[in-house]
């Protein structure tokens, strides 16, 4: 990797200053993704701003929200009593990600900022508009087995690899950020971007902005939830497709629903129309099939990911069945 400067501020403001001053600076927290990318020459920051000394790792109540600090470790959040009690879907999604070793290093903020695992992004000898704008999309006519079926552009068909983010988008989370112009709140659904013409931009963070926390509002999704991750081995693999399903069922009628998919788009893919189609219906396989059909509207596949057009709706049905405990 290249030589780089390294700073480890102890104050949030100093961290933001360090980031804002240098366009080529990167935050490092757990480093579970960035270090790999630097070793392969995919990213070459001139400066690393290590934020591990900032007091951002608390998990606490804030009114009717659970607030999770950006530096809270994935492994800690997944085991946290508050999270398990109020947002079990999040705990399930976290535990579906990576390995125990990685979860013990990776942070909540870093998880959201993971780069895609697209093969063409990872290999500097191959074209990739995300890594090198204008070089072309290697995946479009290449080995696109893992790639998007929603929201892609002709510049990029990569998917976002996070499991945690799929649960957070389903749970209506909000991202708290702090930057040179002050603090702001970004609804999770607007945090990640679709590729459009600027696939190099994964998120709507502005230069110099730092994620400080995530807020998750209380909601009656504590019992009938399930995070289903379909992958090619039983653990430690990125999702072919994943589904975050949360239901509020009363007297076998669905009063409210949250549904999102991973592994299908450049961002965690919230399925609001499918959610609406579930409300007021009985919790049956038939209802779930109809919702899956709604969810898949507009999906389009490439040469090697045709299977996702079937795997995705099947997985939605299975996730909802498990969430609702329907045999």
């Amino acid at each position: 990797m290249n030589q780089f400067q390294y700073v480890r501020p102890t104050k949030q403001k100093a961290a933001i200053d360090a980031l804002a001053k240098d366009a080529n600076a990167q935050i490092i927290a757990g480093g579970t993704n960035l270090i790999d990318l630097m070793k392969r020459g995919v990213m070459a920051p001139q400066k690393l701003v290590d934020i591990n000394k900032l007091p951002l790792n608390k998990i606490e109540r804030d009114g009717s929200n659970t607030r999770i600090g950006a530096l809270a470790l994935n492994g800690v959040v997944a085991e946290d009593k508050l999270v398990l009690e109020k947002h079990p879907l999040l705990a399930q999604a976290l535990n579906a990600g990576a390995s125990a070793q990685l979860r013990n290093m990776a942070t909540v903020g870093g998880n959201m900022l993971q780069r895609t695992r697209c093969h063409y992004f990872y290999d500097t000898a191959l074209p990739c508009n995300k890594r090198e704008p204008g070089s072309g999309c290697g995946a479009l006519e290449g080995f696109n087995r893992m790639h998007a079926i929603f929201g892609f552009s002709d510049k990029c068909i990569a998917v976002h690899p996070s499991d945690m983010s799929v649960a957070l988008v389903a749970l209506d989370a909000t991202v708290l950020v702090s930057g040179p112009k002050g603090d702001r709140r970004i609804p999770f659904i607007d945090f990640h971007r679709l590729p459009g013409d600027t696939p190099q931009k994964d998120t709507n963070l502005e230069p110099g902005e730092l994620i400080t926390a995530v807020d998750i509002p209380d909601a009656p999704f504590t019992k009938n939830v399930h995070y289903l991750k379909v992958r090619e081995r039983a653990s430690y693999a990125f999702a072919l497709v994943s589904v975050a399903a949360a239901l509020n069922i009363e007297n076998n009628t669905i009063k409210d629903a949250r549904l999102a998919m991973g592994g299908v788009a450049h961002k965690p893919w919230r399925l609001t129309e499918a959610e609406k189609s579930l409300v007021g219906k009985p919790a049956t396989e038939e209802t779930f099939r109809q919702a899956a059909e709604v969810a898949m509207r507009g999906a389009k596949a490439f040469k090697y990911n045709q299977y996702k057009l079937k795997l995705a709706p099947n997985s939605i049905v299975q996730a909802l069945k498990t969430a609702a405990a329907v045999a």
Binding site: L126, G142, F143, S235, A237
Partner: peptide, 29 residues
């Protein structure tokens, strides 16, 4: 069930060439 190294024939280059993309079984398998 899991292993297979894939070449993108346009480039003649492997595209599944790390332990994240080339799936050797893990304990859970």
């Amino acid at each position: 069930l899991t292993e297979g190294a894939v070449i993108d024939d346009r480039f003649g280059r492997y595209v599944t060439k790390d332990l994240a993309d080339y799936h050797v079984p893990v304990h859970a398998d």
